[in-house]
Design a protein around this nucleic acid. Sequence first.
DNA 1: CTGAAAGCGCTAACAT
DNA 2: ATGTTAGCGCTTTCAG
Lengths: 360, 360
Amino acid sequence: MRVTLGDVARRAGVSLATASRALNGSDRNVGDVLAARVRASAKELGYLPYAPAQALARASTATLGVLLHDVADPYFGVITRGASEAAAEAGLLTMVVSTFADPDLELRNIRMLHAQRARAIVLAASGYVDEEATRRLDEALGAYRAEGGRVVALTDHGPSYDSVRPANRRGAADLTRALLGLGHRRFAVVPGPERLRVSLDRLLGVREALDEAGVALGPEAVEFAEFSHEGGRAATARLLERSRPTALIALSDVGAVGALAELRGRGLDVPGDISVVGFDDIPCAAQLAPALTTVRVPLERMGAEAVRLALEPRPRTAPGGIEDATDGLSAGPDTRSPRVVDLPTETVLRASTAPPPGAF
Amino acid sequence: MRVTLGDVARRAGVSLATASRALNGSDRNVGDVLAARVRASAKELGYLPYAPAQALARASTATLGVLLHDVADPYFGVITRGASEAAAEAGLLTMVVSTFADPDLELRNIRMLHAQRARAIVLAASGYVDEEATRRLDEALGAYRAEGGRVVALTDHGPSYDSVRPANRRGAADLTRALLGLGHRRFAVVPGPERLRVSLDRLLGVREALDEAGVALGPEAVEFAEFSHEGGRAATARLLERSRPTALIALSDVGAVGALAELRGRGLDVPGDISVVGFDDIPCAAQLAPALTTVRVPLERMGAEAVRLALEPRPRTAPGGIEDATDGLSAGPDTRSPRVVDLPTETVLRASTAPPPGAF
DNA sequence: CTGAAAGCGCTAACAT
DNA sequence: ATGTTAGCGCTTTCAG
């Protein structure tokens, strides 16, 4: 019932080794006639290599893992497309796992990916503020790397990881400056969840630009929220209870969409009464009512670059220096310096922003 | 360097078999003390099972494959979330592969998933009109199933597959009837790509409702297009060159978004000058300008049901029993009658539709 | 260039 | 209840 390499070999009248070499061997050392015969009988038999067996024998799989919050979120959807296309080009299959921003789930999923011996793991989400959670994740990732697994982070994961970094802080600062340039002085901000580094990073950018301009941003003007429609909506509602901003900065597009919905529900005109901006430039941002001013993050490219980085040959280097995750101090146990790819972002002005009401 | 089960067994002072049973065995036949000892040393050593070896020994993997056009398309994103959550609950990892609606790529990917010995394959996309392509896909899927792989289709894939079917035809008919009810008589339709069955299915529903009402739909009023923003936009542009519909039916939301963009670019008001409807009810449909009237397809549920179906134990040879969609013809080679789950859709009226201009 | 044979890490009979 | 021992299908030394 199951066609094995042995069947192919027998039918071609060659040994197992020859069949293996002819079909999947990297070497070119099989005679043309035999090779052709092997390929022919493989086709006739409908032979398909048994990946788990190959993995066991080769001590290496043909799979890539992508860890994200939610596949259905367009932010991650686009990243995943970039990553899985790059992976496909390298002959790898992509395993996508959602963590819903839960460090425990993330830890479990890292272990699963490790158990599968995925060639590499792309951390598209992650980057928690919680030190204990981070420590546990680092430990799991360390074990994975100790066995040869490659890890690339798309978020701030500490200096020991290869990473692809969009200019979160800088992008948020530029975005804020654009708003300041329009004349806004009263701001409200809806970052992502407080437990994620990326939220704080982007918020930092906003603060930076505001400080520059001497504009204050009190705690009453900041309302953390999940990266979701409902999160953005509810946070906006709470903000409006206690302040009257002329500009609302949502630090994710999905959150901005929720904010727009809340504003619309209250009969406020955007941008007439209040300007709204998002972050990420997800595909539908340009199609909203009104079209959303935002920061373009090169999502697809991030995914692709991450895979490129992950698959790039790594000098296994320094004899006598296999890592040691425990002694965080001292001479770095990892002689291989992590690669970092910085990707610029770009502010995209659309219809959701205008000078504040009363400006002239 | 690599911790194996053997290491764990040795450290616990038990045999390999006992360690295996204590850690991953389904049986309960390990003494409490030993089991505890094994678990303890596994933890101390940081042991992680080696999935490829388990797969080889068990002749079964813990992975699921999802085949779709594009992960970044929200339609598939949401389906994938449903599927991968259900898979995760069953302890499976999800491999997502994009085919970009290309049958050849799809064939290759089916083979890859087969080679990986994914437990089941969910065909979220697929369903081609081309008979030759379909034959080749069926052949590959047949080989996969012959080895015990399970296949569930979310599109029309012929009667031999387990399937989860949204009411595409019916949904399109209902949607069209809603438009007729508003008074529209001049229609234009942008289905999906002509090579996909789902496009024709939905178009059929439109035709059915139109016929009922005695409204004609000439070939000049139908313009096939890829399921994409640009596809919808360009098709709309072409349609407007040769007709002046009062209602534009895009048979996908992403296409409808493109249509809205084109209309806006031409200075046409929606729904004042022309009503626009989509299909799918992707997350951002409600947030567009204007909010899109569409047909809600239970995407997440489809993904989850598909996995449920795929994982449901299958009587290997059970004669008689559940309904059989095929039995008009011969006694098929497959005695197991395919399961079919039909899922209803629902028309959602939003701001993009209104009575035609001039109606009173 | 080709073949024989030793595993890769784990599970599942089959003993005991 | 626990241990012994074959493999699972493939790659890869190592011989010839």
